[in-house]
Design a protein around this nucleic acid. Sequence first.
DNA 1: ATACGTGCAAACATTTTGCAGCTCG
DNA 2: CGAGCTGCAAAATGTTTGCACGTAT
Lengths: 150, 150
Amino acid sequence: MANTKTEGGEILSRLKSGGYRLTKIRKSLVQFILNKKGHWTIQDLVNDAKHLIPKLGVATLYRTVSLLHKENLLTETRLGGASARYEVSTQEHHDHLTCVSCGEIFEFENDRIEELQRQIAKKLGFKLIDHRMELFGECQRKPCKFKSKR
Amino acid sequence: MANTKTEGGEILSRLKSGGYRLTKIRKSLVQFILNKKGHWTIQDLVNDAKHLIPKLGVATLYRTVSLLHKENLLTETRLGGASARYEVSTQEHHDHLTCVSCGEIFEFENDRIEELQRQIAKKLGFKLIDHRMELFGECQRKPCKFKSKR
DNA sequence: ATACGTGCAAACATTTTGCAGCTCG
DNA sequence: CGAGCTGCAAAATGTTTGCACGTAT
């Protein structure tokens, strides 16, 4: 797929017409963030973006992420006392499997479940539009990347 | 229904055989918490439990809630907001089907889906602990009671 | 020019932890 | 008695905010 890395040009224009100023920092940050894969925390961003913009402050990261979240370009997930995790919003649907120990989030998709969901909705007289499913469990990886709370 | 308020006797014995000590504070706290309705925060608890146990410290609340959560007697939720919310776990699991037009919520349960969820978790190396599933659709009733909010 | 963006540090909010004393078993 | 529970305060996290200065428009 040629589209893995987006230039973000259209998104930048969209932000601009939304009344946001396009500073150098914001431009490279938005582009950087929207090209990130998986579920990351602000802390991840702090580490990764240091190379990009040496004197970047955390506040800017929080503010930028918040901005993108407000614009529905990022999806937020939270669990336990851990920090919020974000992922770039996608059209393609998927569900989440979250480790309650380490906070890691895995994605999955299962057609049979989706089919059953449609059946259930139908039986209850609904036309299914969307759904959200989140599983919680404990991953077997030792050690878990983060501290266990047990 | 005669069972709205539980004495918590069996739960206390269960905690006891689980190796926990039944101090006065813990007993009244557990009983108090498990009779709470709806989704509350620790902060709510701080306010409410002051009447119950005047010199109660926050740490004890956190520790007790954590204990009950570990014992699967409380379910934790964290939706975007700052602090975690808890609710008393119900044995009867159910999922939600929400009408995006009228806001009505239907509950359902489907064993096949639950089974598939377990399979998915297993395949991904997880021990499944809990899940949350919400379907969104349009019910056929016309007119719908509320405006669309989604 | 000026309103908005940024870095820095301080403030905040929530949750965890260390420790001395208390209590259950 | 002794391990576990408690309150208190301090600390650890994660996030927000005030302010002086910088930059896009």
